[in-house]
Design a protein around this nucleic acid. Structure first.
Length: 232
DNA sequence: AATGTATATACTCGTCTGGC
DNA sequence: GCCAGACGAGTATATACATT
């Protein structure tokens, strides 16, 4: 999944609002780039760190630059939360996620009720339907990828919905996409949101499948590399 | 009827504002 | 001083409306 072109380099100054990040370009000019990450980005923000931005050149946008990645300690971290969905859909269709391989159809962002949508919906005739929820992970400590990076109530809701699907006899899975190359296992961040970790273990015990997809992030883009062990 | 275009909405959370 | 609610930007999808 390569980054779109052209890609510009800069340095991270500060995150002003949820959507806006101040950057310094190589020329020294200060710019504002759009930040397509709704999370807290805890552990991923460091003043002066190198960044990659895509120049959309879209005249309709107030800020034409889209922030794509930041480099900390020689590791690129993908910050675009719209990427993991596409990455997981691609990984499933290519059979990278073994247990989820073999479905005839893959639908993204499918409505499953009046209020909620599922990230990926897998169907294959007689087989059980499979509901897949994708989460973006950018927090890694000592080689361990962790989620969430802030207290999440919507995350809890998603787990509840997946458990409900399993209860109704369907398949359901959580896929955590580690958007950096230095994570070697995955565990919930109990110290940040203890309720989430508890709920994830409950969901797993109830039959919700849990996967962590590792990726290699470079200046060219983000590529899925395989599955990581889950430590619940 | 089929296709093209415009508008609406869900999604996400740090920061600010208003009410108490 | 605290907390609830509104706001903001871009994207993708869905719905509504318009044109051929």
């Amino acid at each position: 999944m390569p980054f779109p072109t052209p890609i510009l380099r800069g340095r991270f100054i500060k995150r002003e609002k949820r959507f806006l990040a101040h950057m310094e370009m190589e020329s020294g000019a200060r710019v504002i780039a759009h930040c397509a990450n709704t999370g807290s980005m805890r552990g991923s923000l460091r003043e002066g760190a190198p960044t990659l931005m895509w120049d959309s050149k879209n005249p309709k946008r107030k800020y034409t630059l889209s922030w794509k990645a930041i480099q900390l300690d020689n590791t690129w971290i993908g910050i675009d939360t719209s990427l993991p969905n596409a990455l997981v859909a691609e990984a499933i269709s290519m059979g990278f996620i073994g247990p989820l391989a073999g479905y005839a159809t893959i639908q993204r962002e499918r409505k499953i009720s009046d209020e909620s949508r599922i990230d990926i919906y897998l169907t294959d005739g007689e087989a059980k339907d499979c509901y897949v929820e994708v989460k973006n992970v950018t927090l890694v400590e000592d080689g361990v990828a962790r989620f969430p990076d802030a207290v999440t109530t919507s995350g809890l809701k998603h787990l509840g919905e997946l458990m409900k699907k399993v209860g109704e006899g369907e398949r359901a899975a959580m896929v955590y996409v580690i958007q950096r190359g230095d994570g070697y296992s995955f565990k919930p961040a109990d110290d940040i949101d203890p309720l989430y970790g508890k709920k994830l273990r409950e969901a797993h015990s109830a039959g919700v499948e849990v996967y962590a997809l590792s990726t290699e992030v470079s200046e060219k883009g983000v590529e899925a590399t395989g599955l990581l062990p889950i430590k619940l």
